[in-house]
Design a protein around this nucleic acid. Structure first.
Lengths: 115, 115
DNA sequence: CCGGATCCCCGAAGATACTG
DNA sequence: CAGTATCTTCGGGGATCCGG
């Protein structure tokens, strides 16, 4: 197998691209819990993340097919974000990754003492 | 809960940092299969990745505690890389993520037809 | 064989201001 | 309310050369 074929073939290289966004995992986690409007979503994000960045990441995730943007034609505007079908399947990854993340945090905090 | 506390607390934000490396997932996957020397590892990576980048990523992953570098005092040098304890626990994530990645690739290829 | 040291480049993230 | 436009900054990745 030629090495170049790894792209578009290897699930890890492909998955990695989705996770490049600095906040993508957290956004997906929040949206896996509940469908949210833009401002609601922003309030649940860390302070350092500006709405500009959030807007961009949401757009990227939408283009990648992981989330769905539902826009209501009304004034004031109302837009809801939720996971798509393939995005919902990502929940399994979030579950396992969340567990590992806690173990990893525990490991970081101990470092030498057992945890 | 203050939002700033998310760092170091939230498993997703923490995990995300580990996965920022462009090839980290693939490296971890390769090393989850077998312990390898530097050049062996490089031969399994996509061509576009230079040894400089591989070296940096390995160093980062080592500093993060996910992999272990074992150096043998001999000429020519021999260095082996393998997963650490917390790195081995990451295998579960790789399994689930690999499955999802394949579904996602399938989704990307179909896009409109069912898969 | 296994890298480190440099330099460059580019894309992603942040800051700020404006809009339907 | 839910964004976009623009500018700047910053860090990671690639290329190249050097060393034990």
């Amino acid at each position: 197998m030629a090495k170049k074929e790894l792209f578009g073939l290897c699930p890890y290289v492909t998955s990695q691209k989705v996770l490049t966004g600095k906040w993508s995992l957290y956004i997906l986690y929040i949206l896996s819990q509940e469908t949210l409007r833009f401002n609601e979503l922003q309030r649940r994000m860390p302070e350092e993340m500006t709405h500009t960045t959030l807007s961009r990441q949401l757009k990227t995730l939408e283009e990648e097919g992981l989330i769905v943007r539902k826009e209501y034609a009304q004034i004031p505007p109302k837009v809801e974000y939720q996971l798509s079908e393939i995005g919902k399947k990502f929940k399994k990854v979030l579950d396992v990754l969340g567990e590992w993340g806690e173990e990893y945090i525990c490991y970081l905090n101990s470092q030498k003492t057992d945890c």
